[in-house]
Nucleic acid binder design. Structure first.
Lengths: 188, 188
DNA sequence: TTTTTATGTCAGCCATGTTGACTTATCTAA
DNA sequence: TTAGATAAGTCAACATGGCTGACATAAAAA
């Protein structure tokens, strides 16, 4: 591998390569969301509902502030979908124990089932792409995407050794959950 | 490396890993678009304008049908932004030479300059992520994203050897370009 | 007790996607 | 040469999901 510092513009940083990356992200994300969107339509829900259900499922007991931090939308925008999901029995809110102003969010059984169905679409798609690309490519995929992410949110992901290729499978376990992040302490 | 066929559920295909991939895509795309959106706001344009400008810049002389195929939106949706861009002098339309029903699209100088400014934001972001991750990770990134993309659109990308893991770094270079895709011949 | 914070709500605006119906110009095939 | 298909555009109406601004309530913190 060439020493990056000594090369002003390595081949993989040429304009064409970067544009290709931009387009891969566009097409990739477009198709990544397309499948789940169909499932959502059957419930008369949109992508915004999916995101709420997904992250609440991932972080049971999270606060509204936590969710806002993740989604980076206004509370008015969130309110529209969240209150709908609560009204229709997909999500429950209970007051926080230490801070009773908080509304801790979690999925109902009904919500958990929807979450499963929704996430299944994307998981299958990602699994297929992972399988086709191989373990090592997956490491690279994660590494690059992590680099695209806002410094502040990067901490949501606990990545193991970037050591790469042959990293001993036995230790890959750990972390797992990773994205938990949003502690209920939620300051802003 | 374990033989995938013999392992029912390799480590990199565990549920946690797949969810992490889903989240990386969400956060990655969110931040990938955030920067350019700010630039767009200064022109009173939105993401839809950006996409049109980007792809027309990338494929000068493309037809409206070509563009619709890429964006996968309705012509009514496209019309709203496209006619605005034409009206304001960012894009020109000229009749097709062989088929005069077609309106071949290209950027004006003004449009090209905007395209440069817009794409610069994303290119810088991608470049930073690429640089931090390294050439080999970039290969993996591309490989996985390509696997997420609709079979039909995959052909827009001419990837070099999927050679995989230990592929000699010296040869990582290759092709580059690629993504042109939408030839103006545009059949549907 | 006063102030700040966490949450929610009403009202209205904007961007961007959708469907359906219809027009115009042009190409293509019978 | 005419009938039908195709490329493009338009009007109208609607849904989703962002946004701002203003204001309300309860509970924590100073």
């Amino acid at each position: 591998m060439p020493d990056l510092k000594s090369v002003p513009n390595p081949l993989f940083l040429r304009d064409d390569e970067l544009r290709q990356g931009i387009e891969l992200l566009f097409f990739g994300y477009r198709d990544f969301t397309a499948r789940a969107d169909q499932t959502l339509a059957a419930y008369n829900f949109g992508r915004a509902h999916h995101r709420v259900i997904y992250f609440v499922g991932r972080n049971p007991g999270m606060t509204v502030s936590d969710l806002l931090d993740i989604l980076k939308i206004t509370k008015q925008s969130l309110s529209r979908v969240l209150s709908q999901l609560v009204r229709e029995g997909f999500i429950v809110q209970r007051p926080g124990t230490t801070d009773r102003r908080q509304r801790l969010l979690s999925l109902t059984d009904k919500g958990a089932e929807l979450e499963r169905r929704l996430t299944e679409d994307q998981r299958a798609l990602v699994a297929r792409a992972y399988k086709a690309a191989g373990a090592e490519a997956v490491e690279g995929f994660k590494k690059v995407l992590l680099g695209l992410i806002n410094e502040e949110d990067r901490g949501r992901f606990r990545m193991q050794n970037p050591g790469g290729p042959g990293s001993s499978p036995g230790t890959t376990s750990g972390s797992g959950g990773g994205a938990g992040g949003a502690g209920s302490g939620g300051s802003r």
